[in-house]
Each structure stands twice: as C-alpha cells, then as structure tokens.
C-alpha cells in the first residue's frame, strides 16, 4: 500500500512552478475559449486583450446567422453536424470496443497457433499514417456506395479503432487471475457466464479507458471525414473547416465558438469517467 502523504507537502514554490508550466500547456485552449466570447474587434485587437466585455453573439452565430448567399439570417446545419459527430464517434467506438473485447478475450484465452503473429499483423494496420491508404479506401467506398453514408464512416472508424482496442483490452484480460475463471467453472458457470459474469466486470475500468481514448481519436478525425462524409453525414471538424473560407475572411470568434462547443462533449465524457480512466491506465501496474 502507498504511504499516505500530507496534502500540499510539495510546498507553495513547487505548486506555483507546476501551475505555471500547466498554464503554458493550457494556454492555447484558454485562448480559444476566451476568443469565443470576444467581438470581432476584440478578437483581432493588437496587442491581444485579456480583459473585455464578453458577448454570446458568436455562439448564436454557430446555429443561426446570415450568410452571403441566403441574405437574411437563418438556422445553420450545425445541430446536425454535432449530432453526426456524436453519433458517428459514439457508435464506431462502441462497436470497436464490442468487437475488440471479443477478439481480445479470444487472443488472451484461446490463443491461436502463432498468436503473436496475428496480433502483430493487426498492429501493422496502424503503423503507417492513414493518409497512405486514403486512395484505395476512397475507391473502395466509391465502388461499394458507402461514400457519404453513416455506415461508411462508422465502419471506417470502427476499423481504425479495433486494433488499438484489441491490444489494450487484451492486456487487461492478460492481467486477470485465471484461477478466478477456474473457480467460476467449478462453481457451475458455463463459458458464456465466465466471460460476461466474471471476466468482463473485472475490466470495466479498462474498457472505460479504452472507450475514452478511442473517442478522443475519433472525435478529432478530419481527413477521412472530409473525403468520405456527405452533406447529411458531415462531422463538426469538417464543417468547422468549411466556415473558415468565405468572402469576409476568417471569422475567428465564430470558429472559436465552434471549437469551444466541440470541446464540451469530450470534456463531459472524460470528466464522468475520470476515476475509471485513472484505474484503467494504471491497470496491472499496481500489485494485486
């Protein structure tokens, strides 16, 4: 057991130092969030303003604004884009976890001849930058008609998340004490129950961690979303990029408001799962 330590034992000096370093790393995020509340003039002011009168106009503009072509103010498609991002990321990460967990359990408990080779091959699919395979994937999507559909992008993201899910979840299964599973068998549990009732509950924290990591990666994905989503299935990162062009130049306030809103869902998920997350990433490093 870890020795309990006094809270604040590091002292004020070190705490302040750590705070400063953190601030440097956090600064870009802070800057964007602040900009979201600035008027166009404040956003572009030189030197930059730290103190200003906050406005909600940018946030209103995300959902409801004038456009050059349409003239009068009207609702934007952003509610749809946010739904798309949540739906596509959520579904594909959940799907990847379900498939990855089943595969990981099989790799861990019923190893194939040449198990490690299979695992290595699975990992190789993530070794190159995704852009390398973009042309074949684009052609495959065109050929199968998956381009622009929800299923297309969901399946693609699922495929991206599976290798990572398998490796991570397998390591959690490997850490479990196999005698507990044997005990369950002797207590009358069948194999289905051993998996669902004994193994799975023990790695819930690990699954939560895997879910959050996968979600962050998928949530922010831009390249494939740009090429493979259509008008109806466009995700926020793509929509965000599209607001950057235009005749009036870049509306930094609007962009910052979108980014700020974009941060909220992932922030909430991470916050809700933070305890599980910590246990998940330290899985196996703590003596049982």
């Amino acid at each position: 057991m870890a020795r309990p330590r006094e809270i604040g034992k590091a002292g004020w000096g070190w705490t302040l130092f750590a705070g400063l370093i953190s601030l440097v790393y956090f600064f870009p995020v802070l800057w964007i969030v602040l900009t979201a509340f600035k008027t166009r003039t404040d956003a572009l002011a030189v030197p930059a303003k730290l103190f200003f009168t906050p406005t909600m106009q940018n946030f209103i503009n995300v959902f409801y604004r004038e456009s050059i072509t349409a003239g009068a103010a009207q609702a934007t498609e952003f509610p749809l884009y946010f739904f798309n991002s949540i739906f596509v990321s959520g579904t594909s990460v959940a799907l990847a976890i379900v498939l990855g967990t089943l595969a990981a359990y099989a790799f861990s408990r019923y190893p194939l001849r040449g198990n490690d080779t299979y695992l290595f091959i699975i990992l190789t699919t993530r070794m190159m930058p995704p852009i390398v395979v973009i042309i074949p994937i684009f052609l495959m999507f065109r050929l199968t008609g998956l381009s622009g559909s929800y299923w297309g992008i969901i399946l693609l993201y699922t495929a991206f998340n599976i290798p990572f899910s398998i490796w991570l979840v397998k390591s959690f299964f490997d850490e479990l004490n196999p005698e507990i599973e044997d005990a369950a068998r002797m207590d009358g549990a069948n194999e289905r129950r051993v998996f669902f009732g004994v193994c799975l509950p023990q790695i819930l924290a690990g699954l939560a961690a895997t879910f959050v990591f996968g979600l962050i990666l998928t949530w922010n994905e831009f390249l494939f979303a740009l090429l493979l989503t259509g008008v109806e299935t466009r995700t926020v990162p793509v929509a965000m990029a599209r607001t950057m062009g235009g005749e009036v130049g870049v509306d930094y306030g609007l962009l910052a408001a979108i980014v700020t809103l974009f941060l909220v869902p992932i922030f909430i998920v991470t916050y809700l799962l933070q305890n599980q997350l910590l246990r998940g990433v330290t899985f196996g490093t703590v003596k049982k």
Binding site: N177, E179, I180, D182, A183, M186, D187, G188, Q202
Partner: peptide, 28 residues
C-alpha cells in the same frame, strides 16, 4: 468441470473481486 460435485480452494483464493462476500458465497 461443472457438476462433478467437487469444490476447490485455490492458492490465490480466486475470490470474485467485483462481488461482495455475500455474493461470492451465493455464486455457486
């Protein structure tokens, strides 16, 4: 394995960590 009418006590105890003691007892 199931239904041989035997029980085993393991070196590592092999208790179900996600269940309470009462649930561990009740499991079989």
């Amino acid at each position: 394995v199931q239904g041989r009418g035997m029980a085993m006590i393991f070196q590592t105890f092999a208790l179900y960590p996600h269940l309470t003691v009462r649930q561990n007892f009740a499991y079989p």
